[in-house]
Design a protein around this nucleic acid. Structure first.
Lengths: 221, 221
DNA sequence: ACGACTTTGTGAAGGAGGGCACAAAGTCGC
DNA sequence: GCGACTTTGTGCCCTCCTTCACAAAGTCGT
């Protein structure tokens, strides 16, 4: 089964979401000069069960050797290929407030071929300012960035009120992958993938569990 | 059904994860002086189906009126209560690098009763420095923070290599809710809730979808 | 007071995903 | 070369969600 075939047939979303974790564990192993790894070991490193790991990997193809395990380098390549990490992914950050500037400074982007090629804001007062070695540019540059630089991923770091407008601009310019840090639900066409990262939501979920633990304790100690 | 009862019986995790979204939509409605809302409208605002919304709310109790809808204020209170947001949640941020400082500056915390009561780092060279109006404190303050200030939630913003140690310290001090921004899988006792926020993982998932779209297009245009 | 209408709450069906367990497939010692 | 051993890949089951569809329950106009 070729990578293209495997990619075309549906890999379950839940499995896709775990692949980056496997890739990271494999990269760490490769750094320690480990050549081969069993599903049991890799699963432990990635924090999942070995059965789940094997099933997830089976969606990509059959890259293990029975009785031995997986070749670390090979498997890392295959996962990277399945995720589409063989190419560079130009990224633009929209919204240069506190969060946007922190993201621009963040070195985690470069790690896997994600290159921040532009910092954008619609406020004329910050356009031209320099952040993390780049000039802040106006939103009107978007079309050119998609056309000339292959911009593919937009990161929304605007205040909630401006997020939908920012998303609309990105989509209109042809961006089809959006990472939304604003605390709002974004509407977008079906062929656009929108993912949300929300600190406040995460904290509230933690509060539920903390709260729940306390209640359960009080009721049945 | 009382709130305590509803909370004790399991609310599915998937439903809990959506409650903050409902709460935010309700807060927005309340801000526009909307008094009542139907499941259809609220579901649209929160980006889910109305059937799912009604089922999720039914786990908390029966707070709607048939033929009319939900009272915005009442429902917001009930959800906040279910999430445990009637109390304050003291938060400590561990790791005062780029990310930790950005988080310390971030105003999203205060929004829902989450108070950043301490900024911690194990590096003596930054201890004492002032960030966002607070002095950076040593990790050894943890026990006192839990005992005296009710510290309940730890946010890990250390480099990957230090994240497990930071988590262990938090757990040892009695913190049972951890939000992990480091790109590693944390091991923790079962009664500790750990959630992970990882920019790099999110980007890789977006890359998969962008990549996949392109492959599908090339194969079957 | 009553009937038409609206909207909730929920049983039941359908689907996706995780875990178990084992046959298949390969390695390694002798 | 062969048998014992290890580890993968996967069929099957089971659980948890999501969606559907509708009876129950309430409102509102007359």
């Amino acid at each position: 089964m070729s990578t293209a075939e495997a990619t075309r047939r549906g890999v379950p979303d839940a499995a896709v979401a775990r692949l980056p974790g496997y890739l990271r564990a494999l990269t760490a192993l490769a750094g320690d000069d480990v050549a081969s790894v069993s599903s049991e070991e890799l699963a432990a490193a990635a924090g999942v069960s070995s059965a789940m790991l094997r099933k997830d990997l089976s969606y990509l193809g059959s890259y293990g050797v029975r009785g031995v395990g997986y070749d670390v380098g090979r498997l890392a390549s295959e996962i990277a290929a399945a995720l589409g990490l063989t190419q560079d992914w130009p990224v633009a950050i929209v919204g240069m407030g506190n969060l946007g500037r922190a993201l621009a400074d963040y070195r985690g982007f470069a790690e896997r071929g994600f290159r921040v090629i532009a910092l954008l804001d619609h406020d004329e007062r910050v356009i031209g300012e320099e952040v993390a070695g780049q000039r802040i540019r106006p939103m009107t540059d978007l079309e050119a960035l998609v056309r000339d630089d292959g911009l593919a991923i937009g990161v929304i770091a605007t205040p909630p009120a401006g997020a939908q407008a920012a998303c609309d601009r990105l989509v209109a310019a042809g961006v089809r992958s959006v990472l939304n840090f604003a605390a709002v639900v974004l509407a977008a066409p079906e062929d656009v993938t929108v993912r949300k990262v929300d600190l406040s939501t995460e904290l509230q979920i933690l509060a539920f569990h903390g709260h729940r633990g306390a209640v359960a304790e009080a009721v049945a100690p």
